[in-house]
Structures are given as structure tokens and as C-alpha cells.
Design a protein around this nucleic acid. Structure first.
Length: 506
DNA sequence: CTAGGGTTAG
């Protein structure tokens, strides 16, 4: 039996891409098996337009319902995707090389399904590899094939290649589908390749794919991303005024975010009001964008006002809302408000990031020490105790330091020394001021022996006590009439090369 | 149209 030898169809085009001005060049060879495709004539290098058209007609003309097996139904496709996902990565590669695994890819419909399934299963590389090996299945790519390939390249971040395929399609009478073009436009926008994204928009216009509001929103995002906020705003205005598409809340959020990112949150709020006037319902994304803006700008309290507005508009703040605000409040030292937000988060069962809780504790300690505000310290200690009792407790050494110092300041000496010990147990090295504070506090309460123990723990840790440390102890020993002890301390200091400011009493 | 848009940060 004589089999016709496969013809190699090199998809290399002599023309230039309308997109790039570069020659199109595909690596793949499409070998057409005549026994299967029954196609009569091919140009030596390219599929001809007529063939392409007939190929498509053939597919579209099929009485689809009867001819589709379970794989070509929506559910069947989905299960193919799931199957691919479930495969170990080794076998994933095999699916495109072994016919037993990939089943019969005899028709272009089935082939495209497999391509699509690989793309959907986040395996664009495999899909492209399969596309490369179309020849062995004896198939010619159609519009669907190319559309999927474009999306594969977008997924791969190989946008230049995606544009090249699109250019090839246009030159050869293939009609890219909406999704491929949209994905490409979006990918380009996301990367800030605005000129090329607008190029795709032009193409959509030329081939009669009507951009939707989503399409424009991608461009708005892209413009903002590269800092062209003003242009984004103008585009938003044009969308509305010239009734190109009706802007939705995504459009507004995109431009608002643009303003927020460059420190123009007030203008973002103006846009919010405009959206509200238009009857659009701002959602959690819209508000979160504003929180972020005000926090970046150093106006977190404005953000808290927006939180109130958000609730009035029946929009439920989420973890990001609170985290953004809390972070901003802590950063800009709005400690009391931060505490309020923290408690509100706990109240609705949100888990607060441990770093922020640490920061809150430190903020409260610092403020209570500076302002001698006892109630603030109580708050700090409550937050600290809760932090310690959490299962996934993470305590920063600097938090420990500040809590201990604040405890000393508040004359909670025993607790201070307990926490100091715990801190050392945990392998942290307390700051010298912390040691000094505890020693001082103990001395003030007349607990000299304990103070000496603290000094000892300092030595055990291989640390050199500071001059202040000795001075405090000498003063205290003097006060107790223990000249001997004071002399001993003085000597110990001198031995370390430190000259205490206090001397033993004569 | 087998698809497609967004928000935090240390």
C-alpha cells in the first residue's frame, strides 16, 4: 500500500506583519497528510485562502450536535482539562506525544479541543508544542487553532509572538476570535505596552470586532499603569460623552486607582462621587483603592472617613480594606485610630497580620511612655497578651523591648522582669536600655537581689553591662548601706573598663 | 463568541 508522502508546509511568510513590520516566521512545519484531509492543492509554502475558507466552512457546516462525542461538549472539555491537571508533570508531556494518551486527534475540532484544554490547564508550553507537531496528526490549523495559540503566547508572556500570529492571521484571511484579541490587548496593557495595545484596538475596529467596556477598561488600566492618568481620565470622559461604551464601576475604579497611585486621592474621590451620581454602585475594590490612596498620601484618617461612607453605601469592608487602613494608620502613627480599627477587625473575626499587631503594640507602648497615658498602656498590654496567646504567635524582639520598658515606666516591675526573662528564654537579646530599665525599676522597689540577678543574666548572655547599669546598682547599694556591695560593683565596673557616675559611700 | 476587566503591604 502506497501512502502519499506528507507535504511539508512551512508557514513562513514573505510578507510583513501589519503589526510589527517584521516578516512572519513560524517554526512549525505543518505536514499535510492527504490520505486524511483529502485536500487537493496547496501552495508550496502556505495554505491557500480557499482552503482555509473551505476548512472553516467544513467545520461550521457540521451538524454539530450529532457529531460531537462527549469530549466536545462543554462538560467533556472541562473533564479533559481536569484530567490534564491531575496528571503528574511527566505524563503531561506524554499526552502530546503518545496517541494512546491523547486519544484520537483526527479532526481539527478534536485537535483544537486538546489545544484549548492544555491552555486552560495552564500548560501553554505544551499546547504550543502540540501546535508545533500538528503535522503528525495531519491537520491544518484553522482560526480557532491560531486564536488559541495567540492566547498561549499571551499566557507565556511572549507577546511579540502573539502579535506575530495575529498579523499572520490577518494577512491570510483568518478571523481571530474576540477572546484571543481581547487577551492580547489586555496582556499588552498590563505590561504597559500601550502603543501596541492601541494597535490591537485598531485591528478590532478594522475587522469588526466591537470593543466592549471591558476592552476599554483594560486600556484605562494600562494608561494608569504607565502614569498617563490624565489620558485615562480623558478617555473615561470620552467614553461617556461620545457614547462609545457606557463606563461601568470598573472604569471608574481604574482611573481612581490611577489618581490614587500618584497621590491625587481627592480627585479620585471626585470620580467616586461622579460614579455615585451616575447610579453606579462602588464596590469593595473601589473603596480599597481609595484607602490605599489616602494611606500612601499620609492621610489615613481621610481613609477612615471613607470607611464610614463605605458602610453607609452598604458595601462591606473586607480584609484588604482593614489591612490597608491599619497599615496606613500605623505607618503615620495614628495609634489610637489604629487600635480602634484593630478591635473592629477582631470584632468581625478577621485575622490581623502579626507584623501589624506588633507594630500596634509598639506604637501604644511608645505613646503611653511619652504621654504617660495609663489607659493606652493597658490597651497595649491587652493587645500584647492576646498576641502572645495566639497559636501562630509571632513576637518581634523590639516589641518585647518596648513592652518591658513600658512596664517599668508603669511600675509593673514584676511583670517587667518576668517578661525580660521570657524574652531571653526565647533566644532574644534585649536592648541595654531594657536591662537598665528593669534593674532601675527593681532597685526603686528595693529589690536589689533581683536586680543583681538581672545583671547576672546580662553577664551570662555574654553581654557587657553599661555604665548606667553599675551606677544604678551602686546608688541603690549605697542607699541600703551596703558599702561593701557598692565597692564590689564599682570594682566590677572598673574591671570592665567602665567608670560609673556613682561612687561607693565612704 | 469555547473569554474577557479590578483593590494591600511588610
Amino acid at each position: 500500500m502506497l501512502m502519499p508522502s506528507p507535504i511539508c508546509v512551512h508557514l513562513q511568510c514573505p510578507f510583513t506583519s501589519p503589526l510589527l513590520g517584521n516578516p512572519i516566521r513560524f517554526k512549525s512545519n505543518f505536514r499535510i497528510n492527504h490520505s486524511k484531509t483529502q485536500r487537493a492543492s496547496y501552495a508550496p509554502n502556505l495554505p491557500e485562502k480557499n482552503d482555509i475558507v473551505s476548512n472553516q466552512k467544513e467545520n461550521n457546516g457540521l451538524p454539530i450536535k450529532e457529531n460531537l462525542d462527549e469530549r466536545t461538549t462543554k462538560l467533556g472539555r472541562r473533564s479533559l482539562v481536569d484530567k490534564i491537571k491531575a496528571l503528574p508533570s511527566k505524563e503531561k508531556t506524554e499526552i502530546i506525544t503518545s496517541p494512546e494518551l491523547n486519544g484520537d486527534l483526527g479532526t481539527i475540532l478534536e485537535f483544537n479541543d486538546m489545544l484549548w484544554a492544555l491552555l486552560t490547564a495552564q500548560e501553554p508550553d505544551l499546547a504550543l508544542k502540540l501546535f508545533d507537531e500538528m503535522s503528525s496528526c495531519g491537520l491544518v490549523p484553522d482560526s480557532w487553532t491560531f486564536s488559541i495559540v495567540i492566547r498561549c503566547y499571551c499566557e507565556n508572556k511572549n507577546l511579540g509572538e502573539a502579535e506575530r500570529v495575529l498579523g499572520y492571521m490577518l494577512e491570510n484571511g483568518f478571523r481571530p476570535n474576540f477572546s484571543a484579541v481581547t487577551v492580547l490587548l489586555n496582556s499588552l496593557s498590563k505590561k504597559g505596552k500601550l502603543q501596541r495595545a492601541f494597535g490591537v484596538l485598531d485591528i478590532m475596529d478594522k475587522i469588526g470586532l466591537k470593543p466592549t467596556v471591558q476592552t476599554y477598561n483594560c486600556l484605562l488600566k494600562g494608561l494608569c499603569y504607565v502614569g498617563r492618568v490624565e489620558e485615562a481620565f480623558e478617555m473615561l470622559v470620552r467614553m461617556k460623552k461620545e457614547a462609545i461604551v457606557e463606563p461601568d464601576i470598573f472604569s471608574y475604579t481604574a482611573v481612581m486607582d490611577g489618581y490614587c497611585k500618584v497621590g491625587r486621592s481627592d480627585e479620585a474621590v471626585e470620580l467616586l462621587n461622579e460614579a455615585l451620581e451616575m447610579g453606579l454602585a462602588p464596590d469593595v475594590f473601589t473603596f480599597n483603592t481609595l484607602f490605599n490612596g489616602f494611606c500612601i498620601e499620609g492621610r489615613p484618617l481621610e481613609g477612615v472617613k471613607i470607611l464610614k461612607l463605605m458602610k453607609e453605601k452598604d458595601c462591606k469592608p473586607d480584609y484588604i480594606s482593614y489591612s490597608t487602613l491599619l497599615h496606613g494608620l500605623l505607618k503615620w502613627r495614628k495609634t489610637k485610630t489604629a487600635l480602634r480599627i484593630y478591635n473592629e477587625m477582631l470584632g468581625i473575626g478577621l485575622n490581623v497580620d502579626k507584623k501589624m499587631v506588633n507594630s500596634l503594640v509598639r506604637g501604644l507602648c511608645t505613646r503611653s511612655c511619652k504621654g504617660r497615658k495609663e489607659d493606652l498602656f493597658e490597651d497595649a498590654y491587652l493587645v500584647f497578651e492576646k498576641l502572645k496567646s495566639d497559636d501562630d504567635s509571632v513576637i518581634d524582639p523590639s516589641t518585647y523591648d518596648l513592652v518591658i520598658q513600658a512596664l517599668c515606666m508603669e511600675k509593673k516591675t514584676d511583670e517587667a522582669s518576668v517578661n525580660l526573662r521570657k524574652m531571653i528564654q526565647m533566644g532574644f537579646s534585649p536592648r541595654m536600655v531594657t536591662f537598665n530599665g528593669v534593674i532601675q525599676a527593681l532597685c526603686v522597689e528595693g529589690k536589689v537581689i533581683e536586680a543583681l540577678f538581672v545583671l547576672a543574666s546580662l553577664n551570662e548572655g555574654g553581654r557587657v553591662p553599661s555604665r548606667v547599669c553599675y551606677s544604678i546598682l551602686i546608688d541603690e547599694l549605697n542607699r541600703h548601706g551596703s558599702t561593701l556591695g557598692a565597692c564590689y560593683m564599682y570594682g566590677a565596673a572598673l574591671k570592665r573598663g567602665l567608670i560609673p557616675s556613682s561612687k561607693p559611700q565612704q
